[in-house]
Design a protein around this nucleic acid. Structure first.
Lengths: 214, 214
DNA sequence: GCCTGTGAATCCATTCACAGCT
DNA sequence: AGCTGTGAATGGATTCACAGGC
């Protein structure tokens, strides 16, 4: 059970995406879904859906399809979103403020339990979410005391690396980084970078390629 | 007319990322960089850097490396970020507000020229960025009049598909979607989805896998 | 010696096609 | 008959390894 063959990263990401239309279907009272239907909703190949799921077990019924509720539970188990994860956020500019209150996080079991900034004018501030902004000097203690597992970085780029270092030294297990720099410290800590200018550049590239009006 | 590209999507995304350390190097007065150095800064393989760039030409000098300034200019040309792109944003909740003022956009030539919402309490509001929030009914006209090429969707999930449809009917060429749904698109419009809960789920999966404390 | 550019090789992910179950 | 689960085939992307030029 622990010994699992190497599962593609892309598979994990797709499985995360499968859960969203499944939730909608569940809300609509739909009981059963086929790989073809689910694939259509997620814009992927039906065989891809079946293969992705087959890495983790046999959740379907031949001739019938997948039970929506059961499949959702399996996905929750796979992605460990049946557990509440404790997060902190560092950098409460506009983006940080938007994220800490964003419902997508809590809807999926991600809970911000601390907020940090180094701006003296912000420290002590009460946020509408109920959080009080803490100085970054408290990061080490609070990560330990509140059992914070994942850190979200929304600082300016120049501060991001130092922030990541501090989080890692304090024993954080994973980082979600919104600053447009590549942070990584081998082994001890996982890092995911979210950089929407990369997505924009990708759009611009394809637009520029197809478009003659340049 | 027909897009014929053998250039991997991943290559475009990496090239976008190369530009960030290059800008830092340029600011530090570094004139020349090797593929090995650049690869190290971006956490990729040196051969990958060379191959990515070779799709677009021969920018380096054997035995020496790449001229930092020249390489940056080439990348700008490739990604068409030497042009200013006109964007609009739809949905001015916290996330939308944060994005419209975010410096990463304008730093890379992406300019928000309109902001839309359907909440009567928000329409007419003057934002600190100087934008005035417009009703979504004005989307068709303004996309045409202001030559808006890319739309950013930051509405709630339930409104996202209708928003995308309206943008596409109005002639938008590309969409950057932050809502956690897979937007249906006709062949004429490019869509990039940015979904940070997928990134979080991915972190949670890997944490749960490595960690015995479950 | 140093570093790029690139065919060849390797590795990985996706899709096909059908066996197997209901 | 219908749909899953999966080995095999295909198709891409990454890395190697070295030829070519400074």
């Amino acid at each position: 059970m622990i010994k699992e063959t190497k599962i593609p990263d892309a598979t994990i990401r797709r499985i995360s995406q499968y859960s969203r239309p499944l939730e909608r279907l569940l809300g609509q009272g739909v009981r059963v879904v086929s790989s073809e239907k689910l694939a259509d909703l997620c814009k992927v190949n039906p065989a891809q859906v079946r293969k992705d799921l087959s890495y983790f077990g046999e959740f379907g019924v031949r001739g019938i399809g997948y039970d929506v509720r059961e499949l959702l539970r399996e996905i929750e188990r796979i992605l460990v979103s049946d557990k509440e994860w404790n997060l902190c956020i560092v950098g409460l500019g506009n983006l940080g403020m938007a994220l800490i209150g964003h419902e997508n996080f809590k809807k999926r079991g991600y809970r911000f339990v601390a907020a940090f900034d180094n701006d003296p004018r912000k420290i002590g501030l009460h946020l509408p979410t109920g959080h009080v902004i803490q100085p970054i000097t408290k990061i080490p203690d609070l990560i330990q005391d509140l059992d914070i597992e994942i850190g979200v970085i929304t600082t300016p780029p120049l501060a991001a690396q130092a922030t990541a270092d501090l989080l890692m030294e304090s024993g954080i297990k994973a980082i979600l980084n919104f600053a447009p720099i590549q942070v990584r410290q081998p082994e001890c800590c996982l890092v995911e970078n979210v950089d929407f200018t990369v997505s924009l550049d990708n759009l611009a590239y394809h637009l520029g390629k197809d478009d003659s009006s340049l």
